[in-house]
């Protein structure tokens, strides 16, 4: 086996050469079976934390248009199956890249750096613990929709700042700092969900 055997595979339809990882045969245009690849590549992006979400979404939709099994309704079961697998990968990649937390985790994992957001990890960061507790209390005390809105606005400002800090940490290749910020962002977002639920209950009442 040499490098070129790995780089080129055989099109199942016209039996000609196809670059490994290409979704379509360059000769006969037949859809090819998907290969595992990182979420950035799946969406045609260079790995990095800073992503324009409108651009990401446009890429996602454009690829869906090419690869969704509904586009292959008139083709063979085999092609529909490949399309289905491509789209499943695409959905996964999009889910991973669209949220800053998961995107950061993917980058850290690719760099071999563990993150502390698993459920069993204990939080060592004192500062973060105190902050989380204060936010919870603030939310528990909010008894009207406008009070919840005020708490949410404060949390959103913090989230934005945290994402900006995360971007700087990745730019400086400071992975330890990035890992800490990912944890903080996870907390902020969990809190946002709780706030939304609380607001929903107040609306209902």
């Amino acid at each position: 086996m040499n490098a070129s055997d790995n780089a080129v595979s055989r099109c199942w339809s016209c039996h000609g050469p196809v670059n490994r990882g290409a979704a379509f045969c360059p000769t006969c245009s037949a859809i090819q079976p998907p290969h595992a690849c990182d979420p950035f590549r799946t969406l045609g992006l260079a790995p990095g934390f800073d992503i324009d979400s409108a651009d990401l979404e446009q890429r996602y939709f454009a690829r869906q248009r090419e690869l969704h099994p509904d586009r292959f309704a008139a083709n063979s079961p085999r092609e529909r199956e490949y399309a289905s697998r491509h789209t499943a990968n695409l959905n996964d990649a999009f889910a991973m890249l669209r949220t800053p937390v998961k995107r950061a985790e993917a980058l850290l994992a690719a760099a071999g750096h563990a993150t502390g957001t698993g459920e069993t990890d204990t939080v060592a960061d004192e500062e973060l613990l105190v902050e989380a507790m204060e936010m919870r209390e603030g939310l528990a005390e909010a008894r009207s929709r406008s009070a919840v809105d005020a708490v949410v606005a404060a949390q959103e400002a913090k989230t934005d700042a945290c994402i900006a800090a995360l971007s700087r940490a990745f730019a400086a290749e400071d992975r330890a700092a990035a890992a800490r910020l990912v944890l903080r962002l996870t907390y902020l977002q969990k809190f946002a969900t709780e706030a939304r639920e609380r607001r929903g209950r107040l609306t209902a009442a």
Binding site: N2, A3, S4, D5, A7, V8, R10, H15, G16, P17, V18, N19, A22, P26, T27
Partner: peptide, 16 residues
Amino acid sequence: RMDRGIRAALKGHSVA
């Protein structure tokens, strides 16, 4: 065709 594709890949050209 496969031979040609692999030779091209060795020279650093993509099949496309």
